[in-house]
Computed example of a mutant assay.
Amino acid sequence: MNERMSVNKSIVRFKDGNFNQINDHIVTEFPMTIYVNNEEFATMVCTPAHFDEMVIGFLASEGVIRFRNDIKALNIDEEKGFAYVELAEGKEINNQRDFSKRFIGSCCGKSRQFYFQNDVQTAKTSTAETKITADQCIRLMQQMQDNSHVFKGTGGVHNAAICTSGEMVVGRTDIGRHNALDKLYGHCLMNQISVRDKILVFSGRISSEVLTKAAKIGVGIVLSKSAPTDLAVQLAEDLNITAVGFIRGSSFNIYSHPRRVTN
Rank of each mutant, 00 (worst) to 15 (best):
S148M: 15
I221C: 01
G153F: 06
L140A: 11
N179I: 14
A160E: 08
K225I: 13
T229C: 09
A214Q: 03
S203A: 09
A215H: 02
S224F: 00
N179K: 08
N179M: 09
F202R: 01
G186T: 13
G220A: 03
H149A: 11
M190A: 10
V157N: 07
G156D: 12
H187I: 07
G156R: 13
G218T: 02
D197S: 09
K216W: 02
A215W: 01
V170M: 08
N159L: 10
S226D: 14
R177M: 13
V150S: 06
V150W: 13
D146V: 05
S224N: 02
G204R: 13
G218N: 04
S207H: 06
D197E: 15
K225C: 14
Q145I: 07
R205K: 14
F202N: 04
K213N: 14
G155P: 02
T173W: 15
G218I: 00
C163N: 04
V169G: 01
V201N: 00
R177S: 14
F202E: 05
V219P: 00
I206A: 01
L211C: 09
A161E: 04
A214G: 14
K152M: 10
G220I: 01
Q142L: 08
R205W: 05
G166H: 12
L189E: 09
T229P: 07
I193A: 02
G155T: 13
M144I: 08
L189T: 10
S224I: 00
D146P: 03
L140G: 04
Q192D: 15
L189Q: 07
L184T: 00
I193R: 13
P228R: 03
D182R: 08
D230P: 01
H158N: 14
D197Y: 09
K225H: 10
A215R: 02
R205V: 08
S148Y: 09
